[in-house]
């Protein structure tokens, strides 16, 4: 991917020559790629490939050893429009007995916004809208710990959507969810992408990815492949990145971006 192409105004996320070491061990080496507005990008790679670390670097939770990240054209350190980014982590570590309703969890996505004690009417509408989007409007008063795994992930997606983000970062959002729930989740993501939200998703599941995304990056410390999912098998990148033969059932379809 050429530098000039990465710097246009449609670039929402730009990793430029990122390297990262953990306890002296390099986990990411010279990774560069950009995400354009409207992209539905999948990141695949084996365990420990540095996929989640990339998200952490983008969100400022980890500092790269070298290289830089730009969010919506601004250096990560200078970026302040965090409501433009929605993030769903791989596993939300919370106590299932935590006294929070689904509505309150979704409303956490507005914690950046000022306001004393209660939400404004406009904020309440935004929360209801986000819960409607993820199909949980009828579960709003339920405690979060009472939801199924799939519903919980949708609630966290609702939290990420409530501030109406332009970019969604999803770290293995379907882990531990049954196939039926996974399918519902995928339909929802496709709808959100068609509505104009740029999505970057990390997953282990190559088949799942190929049905969903219009661009895929294969990562294991460094980028082995960046392109359309249908081209990944013939590129020979998968066995190189995974260190063994990997068979990917890819699905050739076009997305709106």
């Amino acid at each position: 991917m050429k530098k000039a192409a990465r710097q246009d105004s449609r670039t929402v996320l730009d990793f430029d020559n990122i390297s990262f070491s953990y306890a002296g061990e390099p986990t990411i080496e010279n990774v560069s790629f950009a995400v354009q507005k409207g992209d539905f990008l999948g990141i695949i790679g084996p365990n420990g490939a540095g996929k989640s670390t990339l998200f952490k670097i983008a969100l400022g939770l980890e500092k790269p050893t070298s290289g830089s990240v730009k969010l919506f054209g601004k250096k990560q350190a200078d970026f302040s429009d965090w409501h433009r980014i929605g993030f769903v982590p791989q596993k939300v570590q919370f106590d299932p007995n935590f006294p929070a309703s689904v509505f309150e969890v979704a409303a956490m996505g507005l914690a950046q916004k000022p306001g004393l004690l209660m939400l404004s009417d406009e904020q309440k509408c935004a929360v209801k809208e986000a819960l409607h989007e993820v199909g949980l409007e009828n579960q709003a008063d339920k405690r979060i710990g009472e939801l199924s795994g799939g519903q919980m992930q949708r609630a966290f997606l609702g939290r990420a959507l409530v501030a109406k983000p332009d970019l969604l970062l999803l770290d293995e959002p379907t882990t531990g969810i049954d196939s039926q729930q996974q399918e519902k989740f995928c339909c929802l993501l496709e709808r959100l992408n068609k509505a104009g939200i740029t999505i970057v998703i990390i997953s282990h599941d190559l088949t799942f990815m190929s049905y969903l995304v219009n661009k895929v990056i294969c990562l294991n410390r460094r980028v082995f492949f960046c392109g359309h999912p249908k081209d990944i098998s013939k590129s020979g990148a998968l066995p190189k990145a995974y260190g063994h033969a990997v068979h990917a059932i890819t699905h050739d379809h076009e997305h709106g971006a």
Binding site: L61, F87, P89, V92, Q93, F94, G109, Q112
Partner: peptide, 9 residues
Amino acid sequence: DEDSAKASG
């Protein structure tokens, strides 16, 4: 969820 709170800026 302290980690997600950090990630939200």
